[in-house]
């Protein structure tokens, strides 16, 4: 489920007006980030439309979700629309298990560092498939530079900050600092050639 935001009510309202609803709520990654109270308010606002609700951990786990669907079969049968509170993975799993039901999600999924929240970290890895960390003092320019630059800071780096937002540290400044510390400033001379964005998945 990872980190989600509840969608605006006006986006959902026209989809479900006067329909009977069954709700799936995933709490598996609640500790990562799930706005429990906001979701509760949203659900409370649906009132009489709700014919049933199942809260479970790890909606993305097909077997678990399948068991819950069996356990709540009669309520689900009655419902015209299934509403899902989870990340995009959970919503897709429910949708694929209930192929002939209309399934809507009430959440937008957010990106968190560390494989988008699976391993929440200060750092991030974009799984680009060509690790550049050996030339950048162990700081990733793909994940942390606003322009994914492989050849050093653009002209907008000032006082260690990225031009895009003063909240963002310029990773290239950090890289230069780190390499200076390591006595490896010469690696900056290396020309990072155009990146292969088409690295194949597991071979």
């Amino acid at each position: 489920m990872l980190a989600v935001q509840i969608k605006a009510e006006q986006e959902i309202a026209p989809l479900i007006s006067s329909k009977k609803l069954f709700i799936f709520e995933c709490l598996g990654c609640r500790d990562v980030y799930y706005p429990v109270e906001e979701a509760e308010q949203f659900i409370a606002g649906l009132k009489e439309g709700v014919v049933g609700k199942a809260s479970l951990d790890y909606l993305c786990h097909r077997e678990f979700t399948h068991e819950y669907i069996k356990a709540y079969a009669s309520e689900i049968e009655k419902a015209q629309v299934i509403l899902v509170f989870s990340c995009g993975v959970g919503a897709q799993v429910v949708s694929s298990l209930l192929e002939d039901k209309i399934v809507y999600t009430c959440c937008d999924t957010l990106y968190l560092n560390g494989f988008q929240g699976l391993t929440v970290q200060e750092f991030d890895c974009d799984q680009c498939g060509e690790c550049y960390l050996n030339y950048t003092g162990g700081l990733c320019p793909i994940a942390r530079c606003s322009k994914h630059l492989l050849n050093g800071p653009c002209g907008g780096s000032q006082d260690g900050k990225c031009e895009v937002d003063p909240d963002i540290p310029c990773v290239w400044q950090q890289i230069v600092d780190r390499l200076a510390k390591l006595g490896q400033l010469d690696t900056l001379e290396r020309l990072g050639t155009a990146k292969n964005w088409n690295v194949s998945p597991v071979s």
Binding site: N151, G152, P153, S157, G160, Q173, L185, L188, L191
Partner: peptide
Amino acid sequence: AAANPFADPFEFRVTRLAKKIAA
């Protein structure tokens, strides 16, 4: 190509120029 002698990190600015020349 462009060069910005004033952006940070200053020490790297000449290197970046060298890279552009090499390129």
